[in-house]
């Protein structure tokens, strides 16, 4: 009798342990490293997934897309999912042999697209006047201040430059690039027009003249804070980011907004060379491409099976879409 009572007590204690927070510390961690422009939707997706799978802890650590990949390739960190804002980076940087003789990855899944827009607030100069048809006239006005992310640090920065180079050519607006951007630097940024398209070589230091039309910040986060505080009137950024931040925006023509696969050949006509090679593992040439998001599971993912399950859930969420989500492919 005593023995069976003892066994019952032991079983009861075990049951209480299992049902209580004692098992909370044993959650399986799935480490996800996404591009900064995906943080908002991924936080939502994380919460939904963890509510359905309380045994899983999705840990999200945002970086720029190249830095996200470098966590695996250069820093050898064990990451379960890499999600980037430029699909071409995965084959460029990860389809090569890692330290254990296998490629960092051999596949990727493209799942969403984005486009460049002009974000603004109701307080921006000419906010009630700007439209899809006159945006370049508004930006060209002397008193209008514009901003974009540092192209050396953030893909949306060099995409802003590429978009403006394409605007000058595709929309036949000679001098637009220099009026809005190039002339704010000393010496002025000069677009070199060649048989192979427009080429822009950036200086080592991307510092516009003090008090000029252009302001540059490290990333969207700081740029949009500046926009909201009135430091600039218009910011070049991704459509999903503008929506996620509750900003007003002007959509730009598909020929230049880097958002339409049908115009991929047009986009290819503009190339930016960054002022220096920030990473030993990737060069400083950036050519216009449709903005496509992609995901992969690296060779050294600690939880590849759980990563696959979360990946399937994430892809379904992006295909459904939501506020601040890049558009599904």
């Amino acid at each position: 009798m005593k023995k069976s009572l003892f066994t019952a007590v032991v079983l009861l204690v075990l049951l209480i342990f299992l049902c209580s927070g004692c098992i909370a510390g044993e959650k399986t961690v799935v480490k996800v490293v996404p591009a900064g422009s995906l943080l908002l939707p991924l936080e939502e997706i994380e919460q939904e997934y963890e509510a359905l799978h309380p045994e899983i802890d999705i840990q999200i650590e945002g970086h720029g897309s190249i830095q996200a990949i470098r966590q695996v390739t250069d820093l050898n960190r064990p990451i379960d999912l890499i999600v980037v804002a430029d699909a071409s980076l995965i084959p460029d940087m990860m389809y090569r042999e890692g330290p254990v003789g296998v490629n960092y990855t051999d596949w990727y899944t493209p799942f969403a697209r984005n486009e460049m827009v002009l974000a603004f607030t109701p307080e921006s100069a000419y906010a009630d006047e700007i439209t899809r048809d006159n945006w370049y006239e508004i930006l060209a006005r002397d008193e209008v201040k514009v901003g974009f992310s540092n192209p050396t640090l953030d893909a949306s920065g060099y995409r802003a430059l590429i978009m403006m180079m394409l605007a000058e050519e595709q929309l036949n607006l000679p001098g637009l690039f220099n009026t809005v951007i190039g002339d704010s630097f000393k010496p002025a940024l000069m677009v070199n027009k060649t048989e192979n398209g427009s080429i822009l070589e950036l200086p080592v230091l991307m510092q516009p003249e003090s008090g000029s039309k252009v302001t540059i910040r490290d990333s969207s986060l700081f740029l949009l804070n500046l926009l909201e505080s009135g430091g600039i009137d218009y910011a070049f950024d991704y459509k999903s980011v503008a929506i996620g931040q509750g900003l007003r925006y002007v959509e730009l023509p598909a020929e230049i907004n880097l958002g339409d696969e049908a115009f991929a050949e047009n986009y290819d006509n503009a190339t930016v060379y960054l002022g220096f090679q920030r990473f030993a593992t990737i060069g400083n040439k950036r050519t216009g491409l449709p903005i496509v998001y992609a995901v992969t599971i690296p060779y050294n993912a600690p939880e590849p099976e759980e990563a696959e399950k979360f990946l399937a859930f994430m892809l379904a969420a992006f295909s459904e879409g939501g506020e601040g989500y890049p558009a599904p492919l």
């Binding site: 250069d74 230091l205 700081f222 220096f276 090679q277 920030r278 990473f279 030993a280 593992t281």
Partner: peptide, 20 residues
């Protein structure tokens, strides 16, 4: 780790730096 960043003379003097 193969990373490079470039500073201007002004930045080394404590100018052209952003604070938040």
């Amino acid at each position: 780790d193969g990373y490079l960043w470039v500073f201007s003379y002004e930045q080394l003097m404590g100018e052209d730096l952003l604070c938040l």
